[in-house]
């Protein structure tokens, strides 16, 4: 039986994920309980969104380093608009956040696609520029929970349904729907396959009549819109938004994408893997705090090494299963 590479990769990731859970369960008393699930699912909901957005960009051989700043900006601006117009219908608010995020994404996409600038340079610049816009326009003041309409902070803890003690929150449902939607879009639709085509061979894609510029632009807009939705959830979860909101999320999203098995040089990868990658990173991050063997100061050191080990294990396992030569990376 031949298992497709993408499925194989997800199975390997799931195995690593289960191994991680079992490891922590053996180390920490009362580890496997509903609270762990509730805590992790809430934060994964936010990170999975930006990681999926990042995956779209990475598939096209680009990178979006400005994503953390976009999350911060949309959270802040959406909060600001809600404070000014508290009567806005709740359904419109996430859409508004997505539009704001998409506008930031469009700036990146325009610069990369129209002027053919390397995305790492463009988004490195917009990382700083978007953050400065936030600092300038906020004048250093913060958004606080008590100034927001009460439905918003409550939204993050509202359950869609519950299974026993496991609470499935709305934000988790939305996030999973987005991931599934992105997965179907990328795997089933012509418009989705174009992202892979551009990433795996830009010249061939161009000769096949795919408009590279437009596809890359779309990738950045999608990345921005998903970062905007994440910004909305961020606002809902934390309520208090300062100018440093979302700082460092760009690297976390890249981390989730690469652990999730998306080829950093574009053209291959799977957003279901990205979801598992995001969950794995968050799980490790959360669990290390509770692991008594290591002090909390060890958290980052261990996290970095574990990411490395996860990727190395994935690479080695996939290679062994495919009996490929060690050089050249995985396809």
């Amino acid at each position: 039986m031949r298992i497709p590479l993408s499925t194989l990769r997800i199975l390997v990731l799931l195995a690593v994920f289960v191994a991680t859970v079992l490891f922590f369960a053996s180390q920490i008393d009362g580890y496997l309980n509903a609270r762990l699930f509730n805590r992790i699912s809430g934060s994964v909901a936010v990170i999975a969104l930006i990681a999926v957005g990042q995956a779209f960009v990475v598939l096209t051989r680009n990178i979006d380093l400005s994503i953390g700043s976009v999350v911060g900006c949309t959270a802040y601006f959406t909060g600001g608009i809600l404070i000014a117009y508290p009567g806005l219908p709740p359904v419109l608010v996430p859409l508004l956040a997505m539009v704001i995020g998409a506008l930031f994404g469009a700036v990146n996409g325009f610069l990369v696609a129209r002027f053919r600038l390397p995305s790492i340079i463009v988004t490195l610049a917009t990382l700083a520029i978007f953050r400065s816009i936030l600092v300038q326009s906020s004048d250093g003041s913060s958004i606080t929970t008590d100034r927001l309409p009460p439905w918003l902070p409550n939204f993050a803890t509202q359950n869609a349904f519950a299974v026993g003690d496991l609470q499935i929150r709305w934000i988790v449902v939305i996030s999973i729907l987005v991931v599934l939607g992105a997965h179907l879009f990328l795997t089933r639709l012509r418009a989705g396959r174009q992202f892979y085509a551009i990433g795996s061979n830009p010249d061939a894609a161009a000769f096949a009549g795919i408009n590279a510029g437009r596809t890359i632009f779309q990738a950045f807009v999608i990345s921005g819109a998903l970062a905007g939705l994440a910004g909305f959830m961020f606002l809902s979860r934390f309520g208090n938004i300062t100018v440093v909101a979302g700082l460092g999320l760009e690297l976390k999203s890249v981390g989730a994408v690469v652990v999730g098995g998306v080829n950093i040089f574009g053209g291959s990868g799977n957003v279901l893997g990205v979801l598992i990658g995001a969950t794995l990173i968050d799980l490790i991050d959360t669990s290390l705090v509770r692991w008594e063997l290591v002090s909390e100061f060890w958290r980052e050191a261990v996290l970095g090494l574990l990411i490395l080990l996860a990727v190395a294990a994935d690479t080695v396992l996939i290679r062994r299963l495919l009996r490929r030569k060690p050089a050249g990376g995985t396809p």
């Binding site: 690469v258 950093i264 980052e300 490395l308």
Partner: peptide, 15 residues
């Protein structure tokens, strides 16, 4: 291991 340097140094940056 042939892991892309972006991934490796992202992890060691944190580590």
């Amino acid at each position: 291991f042939g892991i892309p340097s972006l991934v490796v140094t992202l992890a060691t940056m944190i580590a």
